[in-house]
């Protein structure tokens, strides 16, 4: 019984599923990769580390040494009373204020907290608007034009009630590059 079930459920089933998935949804099955001029620049579902001022940045990440390492996913696992949590949050806030001196909206919560996966591909719309003046200045763009890009790349709640509104950072940065390389 054990051997038979391993063959049916452990081998045939995943092989059939992979075959069907590769035929029906090859793009998603292979990791939703995004290409620019034939070069793979990332996956639309996996967040990346962004540091340059002309790009929008994602959230703090606890995945791997530098963050955003898909081979080492996870959060900080700091509890609400953790001194390390409060200290690192304070440092993150200070760094954000230094990088974004001209921000016009308050710092949103998602920009100072690490995600559960460490590879969160999204930020809240407010987190994008917060960074817009910095990005606009680095690219010598109008803040209004950057805000428009954010609005166009904002995804609402699914069916109006599932999840939260969000902006995919890679998608937004690609749109930026397309608007003003």
């Amino acid at each position: 019984m054990t051997i038979l079930s391993v063959i049916v459920l452990g081998l045939i089933y995943p092989f059939v599923m992979t075959g069907l998935a590769q035929v029906m949804f090859p793009h998603q099955a292979n990791g939703s990769l995004v290409t620019v001029n034939g070069q793979v620049v990332g996956s639309s579902i996996v967040g990346q580390l962004w540091t340059k001022p002309q790009y929008f940045h994602g959230r703090p990440s606890a995945a791997g040494k530098n963050g955003y390492d898909p081979t080492s996913t996870g959060g900080t696992n700091y509890g609400p009373s953790s001194k390390k949590l409060i200290d690192s949050t304070r440092a993150t806030i200070a760094a954000l204020k230094k990088e974004n001196p001209n921000a016009t909206v308050p710092i949103p919560m998602d920009l100072v907290t690490s995600s559960g996966s460490g590879i969160d591909p999204d930020i809240s719309p407010q987190a994008a608007y917060y960074q817009a003046p910095r990005v606009a200045q680095a690219r010598k763009m109008d803040v209004k034009a950057v805000d428009d890009l954010i609005a166009r790349n904002t995804k609402g709640r699914t069916f109006g009630f599932l999840g939260e509104p969000r902006v995919n950072v890679l998608q937004l940065n690609l749109a930026l590059d397309a608007a003003r390389p």
């Binding site: 907290t113 996966s117 969160d120 999204d122």
Partner: peptide, 16 residues
């Protein structure tokens, strides 16, 4: 520390 909102430590943006 001056940041308002729900507890998002360890949570994903898309779920909230």
């Amino acid at each position: 520390l001056g940041v308002a909102g729900a507890n998002l430590e360890g949570k994903e943006t898309r779920f909230g």
